[in-house]
Design a protein around this nucleic acid. Structure first.
Lengths: 218, 218
DNA sequence: GCAAATTAATGATTTATTCAAG
DNA sequence: CTTGAATAAATCATTAATTTGC
C-alpha cells in the first residue's frame, strides 16, 4: 500500500532542527536551505520535492538549568512575545460570566468578538479564549466529578424550575451522561499559519482559511 | 489559596440567545483587591459591555429539532462543492511519503508549505493537512496495536540493539511505551478567525495572530 | 522582610475517542 | 468500512501564590 519507496532514514535528524534560529548546533543537518524556497517550484512539472519541506522547527529546548539571567526588567511590559497569556481579572471575570451564562464552545466568530472585547483589558489572542474555554470546561467537569458524585441533580428542595436549561445544555452542570451528547458540529475556525506565509505568495487567499462553519447543525 | 474569582450567577440566562435581547449588564469586577500588582491589567478604563457581544453569529443554531430551513446558501461561497476534503492520489502519496520519512506533527510553517504544495493537485486547506497527520498517526498506532501485540520488538534472539530509539521517536514504529515521550513543545500556529474580522478594526494586527512559536528554549 | 524553594493553578499541546460523510 | 472532522481527556510546562530559611 504505502509507496514507501524512498526509505529516508534521516528520521531523527529530520526533526530536531528545523530551526530558523540558525541553531548554532546544526547537528549534521547541512545547510538548512534558504528557508523561503517554495516560491519557485512553480506549477510546472510539480515534482514534489521532499527536501523542500525539511525545514527547521524551533531550536533545541534546553529544558532545565537555564540560568535565567535578566528574565524580567525591561520586558515585562507587554509579553515580549514568548510567554503565555496571563489573564487580567477583568478578562477572567468576563470569561467566567460568559461561561456562567452557558457558553462552552464558542465558534470562530464568537471567539473573535470575545477576543476583541477582552483586548481592552490586556493583551490577548483568539487562541487564548479558545483554550480558556477548553480548559475551564474540562476542569469544571473534573472538579465536579470529584466533588459531585452525590449532588448530581439537586435531590430535592427546589427542583421546581430546575430545567432552565431549555436546549442550551449549558445550564451549569455538565451531566455525566451528557458526555456523548449530540455533537453540535459547530465549528470554530482554526487556522494554520506561519510567520510570513504572505511571502510565499498564494493568490488572493489572504493566507488564512476558515473552517467550513458547518452549514447546519443536524 | 487563589483569590477565587467572583462567581457570577446569571447562569441560565443564555447562550441560546446571543442575538436577542441585550441584557446590558456590565460587570464591574474591578475591585477584587489587586493582591499583587498585576502590573498590566491594561488601561482598565473600558467598561465591559455585554451588548457588544450579542451578535447573530450567523443566525441561531437551532440545535436540536431545529427544522433548519435554508441557513446556508448565502454564505457557502467558500466551498461550493463539497463538505469535506477529498484527497487526491497524489496528495495522499505525498503525505504518506512525508509520514514515511518521519514527519508526525508538522508545525504551522510546515503545514503551510505542505498545503501549498498539495494544492497543486487539488483543493486543500491547512487544516486538512493537520488532520491528516493527526488521524494517520493515531490510526497507524492503533493498527499496530491490533496487529502487533506479539511482534512488538522481534521477541526472538538478541535484542542487543533494541534501543535504537535515541530520541527520535519518528522512526516509523511508535512503540507503546513511547506514549509519554519527552514533549518537544513545538508549536504550530493556530488562529481563530471569522469572516470579516478586518472590519472590526484592530490596528495593524493583520487580523491574525500567531502562536508564540516559542522563541527559543531557555 | 526578602528571595530561593515548593506548591497550586492553569495556559498550551498532544493523544484518544467519537461522530458521521462517502 | 474507511477516514475526514471535531471534541474530550491526558499531559506537559510556566507562572503565581505560598512557604521556608535566613
Amino acid at each position: 500500500m504505502r509507496p514507501l519507496r524512498l526509505h529516508h532514514v534521516h528520521d531523527h535528524l529530520a526533526r530536531g532542527l528545523w530551526g530558523e534560529h540558525e541553531p548554532s548546533l546544526t547537528l549534521g543537518c547541512k545547510r538548512l536551505r534558504p528557508l523561503v524556497p517554495k516560491l519557485d517550484s512553480g506549477d510546472s512539472g510539480a515534482v514534489f520535492d521532499l527536501k523542500s519541506f525539511i525545514k527547521p522547527e524551533s531550536g533545541p529546548r534546553l529544558i532545565a538549568g537555564c540560568t535565567n539571567e535578566k528574565l524580567d526588567s525591561a520586558q515585562m511590559e507587554t509579553h515580549p512575545g514568548g510567554t503565555r497569556w496571563n489573564p487580567t481579572q477583568e478578562q477572567i471575570g468576563i470569561l467566567e460570566m460568559l461561561y456562567g451564562s452557558g457558553m462552552r464552545t464558542p465558534n470562530a466568530q464568537q471567539i473573535e468578538q470575545i477576543t476583541i472585547q477582552l483586548r481592552k483589558y490586556g493583551k490577548i489572542e483568539g487562541k487564548n479564549v479558545f483554550y480558556w474555554f477548553q480548559n475551564h470546561k474540562a476542569r469544571e467537569r473534573q472538579k465536579q466529578k470529584r466533588n459531585g458524585l452525590g449532588l448530581k441533580h439537586s435531590p430535592r428542595t427546589r427542583t421546581a424550575f430546575t430545567t432552565i436549561t431549555l436546549d442550551t445544555r449549558g445550564g451549569e452542570v455538565e451531566r455525566e451522561d451528557d458526555s456523548h451528547y449530540k455533537r453540535k458540529c459547530r465549528s470554530w475556525g482554526i487556522e494554520f499559519f506561519e510567520e510570513d506565509s504572505r511571502l510565499y505568495g498564494e493568490g488572493g487567499n489572504k493566507t488564512l482559511e476558515l473552517f467550513p462553519l458547518h452549514p447546519e447543525g443536524r
